[in-house]
Amino acid sequence: MAGGLSYTAEQSTSLSTAEIYGQALVELAEQHPEVVALTADLAKSTKIGDFQKKFPDRFFNVGIAEQNMFGVAAGMAKAGLVPFLSTFSQFASFRSADQLHTDLCYQNVNAKVIATHSGTSFGQAGSTHHAICDLALTRSIPNLTVICPADGYETYNAVMAAYNTPGPFYIRINRGFDRVLYKDADYGFELGKAVEVHEGTDLTIIACGSCVFQALQAAEFLDNADGLKVRVLDMHTIKPIDRDAILKAVTETRRIITVEDHTVIGGLGSAVAEVVVESGKGCAFKKLGIQDEFAPIGLHEDIMSTLGIDSNGIIAAVREVMKADFEEDNDWDDEF
């Protein structure tokens, strides 16, 4: 098992993703005295309570003041500390956007933002607490690495990678439990490299976050029910995006569907589309996500179902895209 991760696969189903982040942070803090934690009155919600108990002098709750938290973290990083900032994704991106942009990214400081309750995972809290545009915002800021892990193990790997890579990071994780995708942390996580979690040559689903598990389920179902071989890529790193994996998918499968718990404008789907279009190679393409609207209120899984980003929605989209005649020829008239 990589990186000294001390909990088991069984535990990973009993720990929420944020709790795994909390454990990873404690582990880092035990090894590295320069690691400090900041939050804006969300220590409990972002599961960094253990850190607070073990390292009270290195824990800073700045109150409900996200802008200040980002500035303080920038100052700390400038002085040699490695701050981890924990708050809800919506506030970590939009509420403190200028500080994220200027204090962290323009100054290119070594600070790590762990943005919890991302996408629609805080479903019942409504759109004030959904973060459906944060990838669009963060992805556009220079110097910022943006990661959307698929489960707890990947979150652990992302946090460790963030510590080991200088510069600002934005890691977007969910509230509560994520379906476990990996059996342990040792599956070859590499920053900026997609993980192929299901092989296939008929179509590629490129997903991130909680949508990866849904995509995997859809692929397995489609294999059994329709005999379709669907490739599933866990595109955990939104920026820098894995261009090679995308171009390989274009060439080898000619059909791509992206799935994200985020608006289809500016997030993973847009990032993939940019690579496809710039490649000059034709490809059937569909973006699943939130279609330029605010999401409904409800349980996360219900919202995902309503939005069509659960396995059923993905299966329907794959069947639709498979109807497109998109063979390897130069006749563009019969292609959509």
């Binding site: 800073f60 500035g71 303080v72 100052g75 990083a77 400038k78």
Partner: peptide, 8 residues
Amino acid sequence: SIGVGTAL
């Protein structure tokens, strides 16, 4: 805010 950070 940045100054608070360097002072801390």
